[in-house]
Write a protein that binds this DNA or RNA. Structure first.
Length: 846
RNA sequence: GGGCGCGUAGCUCAGUUGGUUAGAGCGCCUGCUUCACACGCAGGAGGUCACAGGUUCGAGUCCUGUCGCGCCCACCA
């Protein structure tokens, strides 16, 4: 067997990436009723390019999926394992991107018209939509590419219509005029979740509204003076002392010729401002409700383009902020402006384009959420779905208990067009799965389809079952639903996870997944969010190529504690790279030895077998509990500290390498979920023809633990370390042979110690555990200064610990209450400390 | 206004149900071109576990409070 001298992942990673895809290595078989593990990928946007967030998430998913695929049932059977890949059409994001392209050509989407625009986006999708998929393939994710899906596929589109119609027929989808978040840039309504709130410095303008037929005025405070033109009322609290004399009266709205009523409403806080609040039903959610309570008209003074409407009179046509300036100036001039206070306020911004959203009244489609939320809450409450880490369920509940109806319509051209048709004759609405030929109310054929499309998250919400063939009852659906696990970031628990649960319960009558693993964010070394504008991104395409995908994966996973953000720097990746390099070189050493049939196992063989068993146990448990950093640490410690630093070093003086080969093979299997490429490469170098990914994962076997071997090996390590310490303390060149007396018992091979330490030793057994070490040191007959200092320090520590142990052991409560193994352990340790102290003192007195 | 989380070695972080000198990587110091690996080997320094109380035989780990930092949700003008 041979191996390239240097670890160069670039030489084999692309090969295996293509090989896996070409061989359908990760193709899942559907056997309804059989054990399975399934996971639907959080579909990346088609417009996207692989970034570190994907890389991190995919590393986690891939580790879990690969482990599941390898893991066998108790009776040794493989489990049908499916990781279903796909992409999301990402309504707004994609539309914005194509609009930008058009803009470069001096065109707008309106110039093209709806059909041509849609065709244009599809064309873009066909040409470029596969980019991120190709990047994922290169990264080696173990998806079943034969089942790749796209949210606008015909099948998924059918699922969308089916779900929409069912919800509509149940009365869970309705249409209505309500106040919505309107993005003037994207020209569409947004759901509450798509609005980001940002605190900013604003002002509170106090404006005086004269009471009609009185000398009195009411002062209202507002953060948005431009909306005053749309005021249709002023509220004061019923408990306000002024209520009695002001209530059934009007105020004159400044800058207009309108009179508006004073109403009594608890929305006016006596303690805030002047205790009165203006009501603008058309431009504020609170006021919208107040308007309905008091039957006030709604006057829209700001349009969809964020410019003042004709209703704004002489301010018509002005941008809302320009209008604000003019209005304030005019109020001031006319003496209506009482005062201006600095004020902190939250402004809502479109999370796609960061434009300040405008609350507007608009006719939209809504989903009634309360009835859907109930079973979804129950599913988490009773444990049919669990969150990892568990605390995230609180966040989920918090949102679900306070859920509000979801605005699902978008005024976009890219997406699932709402399956509703308006009748030109009776004006009725027909909602249908297939394009209807006539109105369901009057039979008229004059039907025109709703132009709005659905929020992208509507189709995403169906993803766990729409991808498996729903609404048809397919073998895939029966074999793989509910999916086993969802892995995603906390930022989309509400956007996606919660909606999948609600729609899964509603459509399938069962949970969409049994576990939700919430991971953290990938940040830069300074814990800042990575963003192109900040220039702090680490591009996975660059580092995957430079250091190898395995290195990036391992670095990410070893740094990732459950749920915590990860501070990524090249240093983190380098850690993975170093480990891969180590694996490579250790394998090279092994391959230079003959793989003979293992004969009698040596101490080292028995020891490494036992250590391997422990690592296997740790890794399996870590994967089971989604603790990837622990899995990474387990394999790292085993492979580097134990296999390389001790086992291989000891084996170098051995000719019998058969057992080492066996351990190496197990180690590759153990490592595979974390580092798929290097393990596949080495697997094949060992002569295998099929993928390591389909082999059984090593299982912990209690019988393989070897306490004797561990104890003896520990002794060997202690001796070797002690001699090395002496050498270092006395600055003795390792080539200088030392001679001396060493007393120890057991079967520790002296040749090994001599080779590892370059010491010739005579061995004598010693009572109890531990050993004495005496060497003839060439020059420094006594104890070196460094050693002296260290011993002194060590003794101080020992004194403290011994005193502490004695105190505890002398404490009756402790002896009475502490478990036996703790007490025994402490006694044993105490003896060791005392022996150590005595030894140190002897050395010091030399 | 609610909710969640964090503060452990110079830096980035681990630390399962409270239990036996608190760990890793990087960085640092001292040696080493030892025939797998300098992306390495060997040895070493470095921590009153934010602070103050409490529970306990025993607290980095549980409870309360304080300080500092972060995130999420929310229609208070």
């Amino acid at each position: 067997m041979e191996i390239d001298k240097v670890y160069e992942p670039q030489r084999f990673e692309p090969h295996w990436a293509a090989w896996w895809v070409g061989h359908n290595t990760y193709r899942a078989e559907a056997h309804p009723g059989q054990p399975y593990f399934s996971l639907a990928i959080p579909p990346p946007n088609v417009t996207g390019s692989l970034h570190m967030g994907h890389m991190f998430e995919h590393s986690i998913i891939d580790a879990q999926v690969r482990w599941r695929r390898m893991k066998r049932t108790p009776d040794g059977k493989a489990v049908d394992t499916l990781w279903l890949p796909g992409t999301d059409h990402a309504g707004i994001a994609t539309q914005i991107m194509v609009e930008r392209q058009l803009a470069e050509e001096g065109l707008s989407k309106r110039d093209l018209g709806r059909d041509a625009f849609e065709a244009r986006v599809w064309k873009w999708k066909e040409e470029n939509g596969g980019r991120i998929v190709e990047q994922m393939k290169r990264a080696g994710v173990s998806c079943d590419w034969s089942r790749e899906r796209f949210t606008l596929d015909p099948g998924l589109s059918r699922a969308v219509r089916e779900a929409f119609v069912r919800l509509y027929e149940k009365g869970l989808i309705y249409q209505g005029d309500y106040i919505v978040n309107w993005c003037p840039r994207c020209q569409t309504a947004l759901s509450d979740l798509e609005v980001e709130h940002e605190e900013g410095e604003g002002s509170l303008w106090h404006i005086r509204y004269p009471v009609v037929g009185s000398d009195e005025s009411i002062v209202v405070a507002t953060t948005r003076p431009e909306t005053m033109l749309g005021d249709t009322g002023v509220a004061i609290n019923p408990l306000d002392p002024r209520a009695a004399r002001l209530h059934p009266r009007n105020v004159k709205l400044p800058l207009t010729d309108r009179e508006i009523p004073i109403v009594l409403d608890e929305m006016a806080d006596l303690a805030f401002g002047s205790g009165a609040v203006k009501i603008t039903p058309a431009h504020d959610p609170n006021d919208f409700e107040a308007g309905k309570r008091h039957d006030l008209p709604s006057i829209q003074v700001i349009g969809e383009d964020a410019k003042m409407t004709a209703a704004a009179g002489k301010f018509a046509g002005l941008d809302r902020y320009e209008a604000r300036k003019r209005i304030v100036a005019e109020l001031q001039e006319l003496g209506f402006l009482e005062k201006i206070e600095p004020y902190k306020l939250n402004v809502g911004k479109c999370h796609r384009c960061k434009t300040v959203v405008e609350p507007l009244v608009s006719k939209q489609w809504w989903m009634k959420m309360k009835p859907l939320a109930e079973p979804a809450i129950a599913a988490v409450e009773d444990g049919r779905i669990t969150f990892v880490p568990a605390n995230w369920s609180k966040t989920y509940f918090e949102w679900m208990y306070n859920i509000r109806d979801w605005c699902i319509s978008r005024q976009l051209w890219w997406g699932h067009r709402i399956p509703a048709w308006y009748c030109g004759d009776c004006k009725g609405v027909t909602v249908a799965r297939e394009t209807p030929v006539k109105c369901s109310h009057c039979g008229s054929a004059k039907l025109t389809q709703e132009t709005d499309v659905l929020d992208t998250w509507f189709s995403s919400g169906l993803w766990p079952f729409s991808t498996l063939g729903w609404p048809d009852d397919t073998p895939d659906l029966r074999a793989f639903y509910p999916t086993s696990l969802l892995v995603t970031g906390f930022d989309i628990i509400f956007f996606w996870a919660a909606r999948m649960i609600m729609l899964g319960m509603e459509m399938m009558g069962d949970v969409p997944f049994r576990q939700v693993h919430i991971h953290g964010l990938v940040r830069d070394a300074e814990r800042q969010k990575m963003s192109k504008t900040k220039g702090n991104v680490i591009d996975p395409l660059v580092v995957n190529d430079k250091y190898g995908t395995d290195a990036v994966r391992f670095g990410l996973l070893v740094a990732a504690a459950p749920g915590n953000d990860i501070a990524l720097s090249e240093e983190v990746i380098l850690r993975g790279r170093k480990f891969a390099n180590k694996i490579w070189n250790a394998s090279g050493l092994l391959f230079s030895k003959l793989p003979n049939e293992p004969k009698r196992e040596s101490l080292a063989d028995r020891w490494i077998g036992s250590r391997l068993n422990t690592a296997i146990d740790r890794a399996n448990k870590a994967f089971e509990h989604h603790r990837y950093h622990e899995a990474a640490d387990a394999v790292w410690t085993f492979f580097w500290d134990e296999f390389c630093d001790w086992y291989l070093e000891v084996k170098k003086s051995d000719t019998d390498w058969g057992f080492a080969y066996q351990v190496h093979e197990k180690a590759l299997l153990l490592l595979h979920p974390l580092m798929p490429f290097i393990t596949e490469e080495l697997w094949h170098r060992r002569g295998h023809q099929t993928s390591i990914a389909l082999e059984p994962y090593p299982q912990y076997e209690p019988a393989l633990n070897d306490a004797d071997a561990e104890r003896e090996m520990k002794l060997l390590q202690d001796i070797v370390t002690a001699v090395r310490e002496l050498r270092a303390d006395h600055k003795i060149d390792r080539k200088v042979k030392l001679s001396g007396t060493l007393s120890l018992g057991g079967s520790v091979p002296m040749e090994t110690i001599e080779r590892l330490t370059n010491v010739g030793l005579e061995v004598r057994p010693r009572e109890g555990s531990g050993f004495d070490l005496k060497l003839d040191l060439p020059e420094a007959a006594g104890t070196s200064d460094e050693q002296r200092e260290r011993l002194k320090k060590d003794n101080e520590q020992l004194d403290k610990i011994i005193a502490n142990s004695l105190r505890q052991l002398g404490n009756e409560s402790f002896v009475a209450k502490a478990p036996a193994h703790v007490i025994d352990g402490m006694r044993a340790k105490l003896a060791e400390y005392q022996a150590q102290l005595a030894k140190n003192r002897a050395a010091l007195s030399e």
